[in-house]
Design a protein around this nucleic acid. Structure first.
Lengths: 212, 212
DNA sequence: TAGATTGTTAATCGATTAACAATC
DNA sequence: TAGATTGTTAATCGATTAACAATC
């Protein structure tokens, strides 16, 4: 379906399209033109059509796009038509917050285990799971065919654990630790650096102050 | 200092530069050339020099960049030389996780209050604070000169609260709710859409599967 | 002074926008 | 058929990379 390399910029926009299409579905809207969608989303209609055409035409001339169909197709592109297995590594506040976040489950991201190295939290219940000792991580990943590891632990720990993960054949890492992991090319990484996001906010704050 | 409009792409890279410079400081490195930094960071030396030159030259021909000086300057650009006051709105798992995250405090982002609408959590302690009733939010922001509101509550609540925030003269919103807030131009927003990040991960996962 | 490396201009590349023919 | 709107090509814009003169 997707032959040529699709740019990061396009991919980054897909989840947002999906969200707006979900809203349209909820409103009972059956069809939408790129023009009307562009007004809602504050982007150009041209960009919308270009983006969708990277994956083959989803629309119909003179009609526009069928909301349900387009929603499903974008979902498929994003791999949301499959279930994905995850483990959370680092059962601190953030790890537990993610474990308890229901919406991931609803999208097919199933949390199969939660791990920590700190003895005092091992055995503690989190949602329907029990925090496990990190020493069991490697075999757990293999036995349960875990695809995604979520790293919610401090910098140093993250680097260390990432080596174990690679050894146990993990496919992807969702990294919340404030470090760039050095991994083999076939391991997928997606970083969420919260402090970088906050610094961007701070930059804009500073800009505004200087303007005054 | 920064006259012309600086592109979003450049700004997004600044926190990462800061991080690497911090690491260099910790290693006791005094000076670094754009070339050596480019190798560490896996970017081009050209880009590094271009980026820094948006803010005026920080380097010296034949020498490179002084690590400490550059670190401080980028910190200033990002507004990290000032303290910033924050409130967290939504005392769920994520809100509490952020409240407990010490590193923000260390960077000068001070959490002054945490709010929720749910009666059963009001009064509960979080770190050194007590969860307050959201009805007190507006006066609290005004009385304590709060700059940043962190939104860690569900979609619907976020939209509603954002109106209160605008009314109370908030400067910036760090939005974790999965919705695009419609705000006046002078209110700064920085979004963290975790589910979009996870979908990007999922996309890459899907790509790899299709390749096999 | 010679060598190194920046600051900056010019060239290239890629992404966005505009335009319009194709077609429902 | 006429009108609407896509799919797609072409034009523009902006960001990245390369090159090199300036200078420490």
């Amino acid at each position: 379906m997707s032959e040529q390399k699709i740019s990061q910029a396009v991919i980054s926009r897909l989840p947002r399209y999906l969200r707006y299409l979900g809203d349209l579905k909820d409103e009972g809207v059956e069809r939408i033109s790129s023009h009307d969608l562009s007004i809602r989303m504050h982007v150009t209609a041209s960009q919308i059509r270009q983006d969708f055409n990277h994956f083959g035409g989803f629309g119909q001339q003179g009609y526009g796009y069928n909301v349900n169909y387009l929603y499903d197709e974008i979902g498929k592109i994003l791999g949301l038509d499959h279930k994905h297995t995850m483990v959370i590594i680092g059962a601190g506040n953030l790890g537990q917050a993610l474990a308890n976040y229901m919406n991931f489950e609803r999208r097919g991201f199933i949390i199969k285990g939660i791990f920590d190295r700190r003895e005092e939290v091992i055995g503690k219940p989190v949602r329907n799971l029990e925090i496990q000792d990190i020493s069991k991580l490697e075999s757990f990943i293999k036995d349960n065919e875990i695809e995604i590891a979520v790293l919610t632990l401090p910098k140093a720990g993250a680097t260390e654990v990432s080596k174990i993960l690679v050894g146990s054949g993990i496919t992807a890492i969702w990294n919340f630790a404030h470090v760039d992991l050095e991994l083999p090319d076939d391991v997928i990484v997606e970083n969420v650096h919260l402090s970088e996001s906050l610094m961007k906010l701070s930059y804009k704050l500073n800009q505004q102050k200087n303007r005054e």
